[in-house]
Simulated assay, not measured.
Amino acid sequence: MVKYTISVCNYNMSETIEHSLRSILNQINDEFEVLVVDDGSTDDSPEIVESLQAEYDRLRLIRLPPDPGRHLGETRNIGVRHAKGDHVILQIDADDVYEDVLKGFVEIYERLRDHREEAFLLRATNLTVAPKAFLEQRGPYRNLPVGAEDLDMWRRLLAEGSVVWFVHRDPAKEIGISENVYGRMRSGLVRGVQVRTGEFQTGLSLLSRIRWSHRQWRSGNRDLHEHLAELPLSAYSYLLASARPQYDLPDQFKRKGQIDSVAEEVSLNLAGLEAEFGINRSELNLTDLQDRVFGSV
């Protein structure tokens, strides 16, 4: 019986998807499956996944037709709906390779479950897990573009106290795609517009975004050119968002940066999880690597 579905969203990741999937598939057992939801790719990445299926019987593929109105939030929902496991692991990117930590991550999650009466989402570093039923009922993801869909979900669940925010060393390493300087700049610009557009769709105010950028620049967290680019980028994204579906955020998250302060207040490292929930680190069956990754912050 599959207990955990690892849901991976793919779009035109032919350069990286094989390495990414192998890093995951080589560390799981029969309690796991890997489900790739292909979002209408125009390269040969779906065929690469199909070739891997001959080697790994725990790998499934769903191929979606191209749909310009479907964004990453809805693609994530499709992965949740088609999951065979009772729990779904998300935020696995098709351009990342993962250290051998998934079983340890699940072990921590299961110990936390033993100490909480209500279902919750465990948000970690480049890893997220929650019951499938929880994601369907307390979510789902809104149809928002990449970068905005997770933030929106976290804001809504943080407002109702349904997130355990776990901080640790990042177990994922981005592989990197072959791009020239122009290509990297264009990719960064497109992603920046997508994130801003999605946040404005949820009700984040334009003024708060500009003020946040100014605070980041004054504190040294942003370069001057990044801050100067904020106004035209945000104004353009705001116009794009105005023509798309509109959503709402809990009142405490309608200004940019509020989620950061709340997350900082509620975030826990492994020692914090022990103190807060009474789990015993020495009883966790973590490998030395998993202990270093999850206990390093």
Results as ranks from 00 to 15, higher is better:
168 H>P: 07
127 L>Q: 11
114 D>V: 05
197 T>R: 15
110 E>Y: 06
178 S>T: 10
217 W>F: 14
166 F>A: 09
179 E>Q: 15
111 R>L: 04
119 A>V: 04
220 G>S: 12
128 T>L: 14
197 T>Y: 06
176 G>A: 10
131 P>R: 08
227 H>N: 09
185 M>Q: 12
110 E>A: 04
180 N>F: 03
224 L>F: 15
177 I>A: 07
145 P>D: 09
183 G>C: 07
145 P>V: 08
123 R>K: 15
125 T>K: 09
152 D>R: 01
190 V>P: 00
173 K>L: 08
128 T>N: 12
223 D>F: 08
226 E>M: 07
124 A>K: 02
159 A>P: 04
124 A>F: 05
228 L>F: 06
182 Y>H: 14
171 P>N: 13
171 P>T: 07
119 A>L: 09
199 E>I: 00
196 R>K: 14
182 Y>L: 13
199 E>F: 00
134 F>Q: 14
147 G>L: 12
130 A>N: 04
136 E>I: 14
167 V>G: 07
148 A>D: 05
175 I>A: 05
159 A>S: 15
173 K>E: 15
186 R>C: 00
207 L>G: 11
208 S>R: 03
184 R>V: 01
166 F>E: 15
188 G>L: 02
112 L>C: 04
212 W>A: 08
128 T>I: 15
192 G>S: 12
160 E>P: 01
207 L>Y: 06
224 L>M: 11
184 R>N: 06
224 L>C: 06
212 W>C: 02
161 G>W: 09
138 R>A: 13
205 S>Y: 03
189 L>W: 13
207 L>K: 11
227 H>Y: 15
113 R>K: 15
120 F>K: 03
148 A>Q: 04
120 F>R: 06
126 N>D: 08
176 G>F: 07
199 E>T: 01
213 S>Y: 05
127 L>F: 12
175 I>D: 00
136 E>K: 14
172 A>Y: 09
182 Y>I: 11
189 L>H: 11
115 H>R: 15
181 V>F: 10
147 G>H: 07
166 F>Y: 12
163 V>P: 10
218 R>H: 02
159 A>E: 11
152 D>N: 12
200 F>H: 14
133 A>T: 12
175 I>G: 03
114 D>N: 08
130 A>Y: 00
140 P>R: 09
126 N>F: 06
112 L>D: 09
218 R>M: 11
124 A>W: 04
113 R>D: 00
204 L>Y: 00
171 P>D: 12
168 H>E: 09
224 L>Q: 02
167 V>C: 06
164 V>A: 05
201 Q>F: 03
156 R>V: 06
134 F>R: 01
227 H>M: 15
222 R>C: 04
112 L>V: 01
187 S>H: 15
217 W>K: 10
209 R>S: 14
200 F>S: 01
173 K>M: 08
120 F>W: 06
206 L>R: 03
221 N>S: 10
188 G>H: 08
152 D>P: 05
119 A>Y: 02
183 G>P: 03
154 W>P: 00
206 L>H: 04
152 D>E: 12
138 R>H: 09
119 A>P: 10
202 T>N: 04
121 L>W: 02
194 Q>G: 02
198 G>V: 11
181 V>P: 00
138 R>K: 14
129 V>D: 03
161 G>E: 11
112 L>I: 11
187 S>M: 14
172 A>R: 13
